[in-house]
């Protein structure tokens, strides 16, 4: 089977659909929080990578990363006055605030989406999708968390506290992002310290904190659910056509893994729900994940072939 590169790109874009959907969902909320002087040059890196000579293209991202880190270092040194009086170095400065770091994160997401869409190996596309989607999910949560019933109280309290400790005023979107992060952190705290049952005292009030998106839903849910399902289908097709000649074996193993994955996941969720009254969901899930990872690692130990006793084979 001959699969052209453009068909692979098409499949990669299919795999990246959840990330693309989440990115374009977040962008209208977050575009005011982006520093375009930083965003645009970094967003053009995939183009630069493909324009430079072939033997230098693998180093484009490394060089860009080093430059960004050097600029941050120079900015820090400038803040503490190390470069005072040195003509060029004293002019290097980028604002080290939430907007800059949101911009960097959106750059990472955009570049990962582009590289994932143009990836030659299916694993690169899948990895890029899972990674970027996990990153974007926090920003999706930021857009949804504004409908949380205590949001006005929490956001105003948080904003006041952050201003008090010296942070510059934030954009509403980034404030909602920090609220979502804070709710997540308190939910984790409540889970680990109080077993997920006890209410947690937040900023002087007594509020029971659930995981942010556990109780909030929005129109994006259906979109993300649909794109995740489509992405799984594209993944299967991409893994199937991305091989060399062992299509039959590949297909058998792929469907076996996927079937086991689906059945086991449903079973785990059912067991979690059944054990919900005892508050052991998280513990059970973690034990299951640990057992799964251990089984994977134990079966993957390097084999040392033993002598077979057949003279003509050694």
């Amino acid at each position: 089977m001959n699969v052209e590169w453009d068909q692979w790109y098409f499949l990669n874009i299919g795999i990246m659909l959840p990330s693309i959907a989440a990115f374009f969902y977040v962008l209208p909320y977050g575009y005011t929080s982006i520093d375009y002087y930083i965003f645009v040059p970094l967003a053009l890196l995939p183009v630069v990578k493909r324009l430079v000579p072939k033997y230098t293209s693998p180093y484009v991202y490394n060089v860009a990363g080093i430059i960004v880190l050097l600029i941050i270092l120079a900015t820090l040194l400038n803040i503490y006055g190390f470069f005072t009086g040195i003509p060029l170095l004293s002019g290097i400065y980028i604002p080290l605030n939430s907007v800059t770091f949101f911009t960097f994160e959106m750059d990472i997401v955009l570049v990962s989406i582009v590289e994932g869409s143009l990836a030659r190996r299916p694993n690169q596309a899948v990895g890029a999708m899972v990674g970027t989607f996990a990153l974007l999910l926090e920003y999706v949560a930021a857009t949804l968390v504004t409908s949380y019933q205590y949001y006005p109280n929490v956001s105003s309290a948080l904003s006041a506290q952050m201003t008090a400790i010296g942070f510059s005023p934030m954009t509403p979107f980034l404030l909602s992002f920090y609220v979502a992060d804070m709710l997540e952190a308190f939910a984790i705290y409540g889970l680990f310290i109080h077993g997920g049952l006890s209410p947690v005292s937040v900023l002087g009030t007594s509020i029971s904190i659930p995981f942010p998106l556990n109780s909030i839903s929005g129109p994006v849910d259906l979109l993300l659910l649909g794109t995740l399902m489509a992405s799984v289908i594209f993944m299967v097709v991409r893994y199937y056509v991305g091989g060399e000649s062992d299509y039959e074996v590949r297909l058998q193993e792929l469907f076996l893994s996927l079937t086991i994955g689906s059945i086991a996941a449903i079973a785990v969720i059912v067991i979690m729900n059944l054990s919900g009254y005892a508050g052991f969901q998280f513990t059970l899930l973690m034990f299951f994940v640990l057992a799964l990872i251990m089984a994977t690692l134990i079966t993957s130990r390097r084999r040392h072939p033993k002598p077979t006793g057949r003279e003509n084979n050694t």
Binding site: E253, S257, I260, G261, I269
Partner: peptide
């Protein structure tokens, strides 16, 4: 969860 179990079962089956 499906993704994690699929990845692990792919490796274990192989």
């Amino acid at each position: 969860l499906i993704f994690l179990i699929t990845v692990c079962s792919d490796i274990i089956i192989f």
